[in-house]
């Protein structure tokens, strides 16, 4: 399967309406829209890349997720802000129980948040009662994330796919915390595996059970099939070499978005042949 690099959004010449310091989170909505969090704002784009909406967040956003009902959850240091699709602040979860929130996902009515400070994924029910922690039950007392970001995504079956960069794996967890298995291993320079000290840094689910991951130190994005086999490398050397923790998202058409963290651009990749939805 091949991907084409179709578009670049933003960049150093984008002026004051673009992000100035960081793009940390990307999410693809079911409506084909792209949501991006960075600096202290959220930007919403239509599929053509036009800015539909921009609103401010209380703190710099580290990640964001779009719920089935259209609400937008933005993870920040120590809090999660919940906005309506129109950018209205509906609610904010604050308090000492939240560390550095670097990923948010949904499991039915429950919310899962990745806490990079605690190196685990926390699962809350709709009443914000903590049900359990995921990824703590191992010798390293949590995920190995020297890169500082813990990223995961939940698939339709409720399985959590979480990047464990220190182990060079993408791990699959059940919502109750049981480790189902993993894909990936360290393999030097071979693109079939994950290189460097800690990769992949970010993960997203593509269509057909595929995994989209980003790597640092030789910044690149890759598409893997559900068994972890390499499908395609999306751009080597098109991202700045200093990139780290590039957020990634994939929408229902298989389109892949990668947030380049140094020059603040969003790269868009599309499958060479349109897939059946």
């Amino acid at each position: 399967m091949e991907y084409r690099h179709t578009r670049v959004m933003g960049g150093p010449e984008s002026g004051p309406d673009w992000f100035r310091h960081a793009i940390r989170g990307l999410a693809a909505g079911r409506d084909g829209r792209l949501y991006a969090a960075g600096d202290s704002r959220v930007m919403v784009f239509d599929p053509a890349g036009k800015v539909l909406r921009t609103w401010a967040t209380a703190k710099p956003g580290c990640c964001l997720a779009v719920a089935a009902d259209g609400r937008v959850l933005v993870g920040e240091a120590g809090q999660v802000e919940i906005f309506s699709g129109a950018g209205q602040l509906l609610q904010a979860w604050r308090g000492g129980w939240l560390g550095e929130i670097t990923a948010i996902g949904f499991h039915g009515a429950e919310t899962l948040v990745a806490d990079a400070a605690a190196r685990c994924i926390r699962r809350y029910d709709s009443g914000l009662k903590k049900l359990n922690d995921i990824g703590l039950d191992n010798r390293t007392n949590g995920f190995l994330i020297p890169n500082g970001v813990l990223d995961f995504e939940v698939d339709a079956a409720g399985v959590i796919h979480a990047a464990n960069p220190g182990k060079h794996r993408v791990e699959r967890y059940q919502a109750d915390g049981k480790l189902l298995g993993h894909v990936g291993r360290f393999d030097g320079l071979n693109p079939e595996g994950f290189p460097g000290c800690c990769n992949p840094t970010n993960v997203a689910l593509g269509t057909g059970g595929r995994l989209v991951v980003t790597e640092k130190a030789e910044s690149r994005a890759k598409v893997l099939d559900s068994g972890g086999k390499l499908v395609a490398v999306l751009g080597t050397r098109i991202f700045d070499a200093g990139c780290k923790n590039m957020a990634v998202a994939s929408d229902f058409r298989g389109r892949v978005y990668v947030a380049e963290t140094v020059k603040l651009r969003i790269f868009v990749f599309e499958p060479a042949r349109a897939e059946a939805v």
Binding site: G11, T102, P146, N147, T261
Partner: peptide
Amino acid sequence: GSVWAQALPYERPVDRAPQEKS
């Protein structure tokens, strides 16, 4: 404009070196 864009401070995203406790 270009200077402003180039001059982005390169900072550590998050300092997460594991300490004794973890």
